[in-house]
């Protein structure tokens, strides 16, 4: 890291209200995955994100929490440029991954999404068989070609997603025939089958029952060995359970970003404390 960047970085951090900049709170597995600096975003005239600066570390779970409408989902969608699909959106600032500015005109958003996968709030399996749901993208990306390779990959992805035992006998039934929780795990299997670096999860359990939710939370814990996970949740217990780092969003700003333990036991900001203790939100 050269001096200039480091300087800019510390400037960005000092502009935040959080007491301890997370960038310094390092340990062995704190390698940088995505670096966000001064990110601003507007929906038409409305500014939805204000000067967001955040570091996302590899092979960790980062949770984004905050009251609804605080911009956490919008922020998440900046990381793989899903906001491009909304015509009125305008972004400024740096989102850097692998030394490249994600918002740069030369960045191919298709390539970006190939490396930054996403799981959505509502399970959205394709209208294809369970097998095809998983095999489709790797095949398109030329990760696998022969039938045997495909089968192997599908099995591995479904195993990783903890779904294999439930579906191994009905791989050729439509993906929509599964229950909600199974559908969501199918979507996770689909996402990990392309072997991305990062998986974004946008409230992945909000449409699910408590048991499916627990399964998915366990899964996140396992998956972080292979992938960097960023998840949005409005369930604070969930953030406390699964996340290594937690960012608290409020009205389009990051109020506090800290390791989860600190965030929930000893938050540095009043707002975060009020939110976490349930005074509002």
């Amino acid at each position: 890291m050269n001096m200039q960047v480091a300087e800019r970085e510390s400037n960005a951090m000092s502009s935040q209200q959080s007491g301890q900049p997370v960038t310094r709170n390092d340990s062995a597995n704190h390698e940088l995955s995505i670096r966000v600096r001064d990110l601003n975003l507007w929906y038409g005239q409305n500014q939805a994100l204000k000067n967001i600066s955040l570091d996302i570390f590899q092979k960790n779970v980062t949770a984004l929490i905050g009251p609804s409408g605080c911009g956490k989902s919008t922020f998440l969608r900046c990381l793989n440029r899903m906001n491009d699909l909304i015509p009125s959106v305008r972004t400024e600032g740096l989102v850097e991954m692998d030394g490249r500015d994600v918002n740069d005109a030369r960045m191919d958003e298709v390539a970006l999404r190939r490396r930054v996968g996403m799981v959505f709030q509502k399970p959205n399996p394709f209208p294809k068989s369970i097998f095809e749901n998983v095999a489709y993208a790797p095949r398109m990306h030329d990760l696998v070609s022969r039938k045997a390779e495909q089968e192997e990959l599908v099995e591995q992805a479904l195993r990783d997603a903890g779904l294999w035992n439930e579906v191994k006998d009905k791989l050729h039934q439509p993906g929509t025939s599964l229950s909600g929780g199974q559908q969501q795990r199918l979507c996770i299997a689909r996402a990990i089958a392309v072997k991305p670096d990062v998986i974004l999860m946008d409230e992945p359990t909000s449409a699910l029952d408590p048991i499916s939710t627990a399964t998915i939370e366990d899964l996140m814990d396992k998956l972080k060995k292979q992938f960097t996970i960023v998840t949005v949740t409005h369930n604070m217990q969930q953030a406390a359970r699964v996340a290594d780092y937690t960012a608290f969003f409020h009205l389009g700003e990051v109020i506090e970003y800290n390791d989860t333990k600190t965030m929930f036991s000893n938050p540095h900001t009043k707002k975060a404390e009020d939110y976490i203790t349930g005074r509002y939100g």
Partner: peptide, 24 residues
Amino acid sequence: SMRQGSLALGMTKSETIRDVVIPA
């Protein structure tokens, strides 16, 4: 959500239309 699911896997727009939207 179906289009987004496909795009988020790194499919191009046309691939999404051909393989996901039209079959649906």
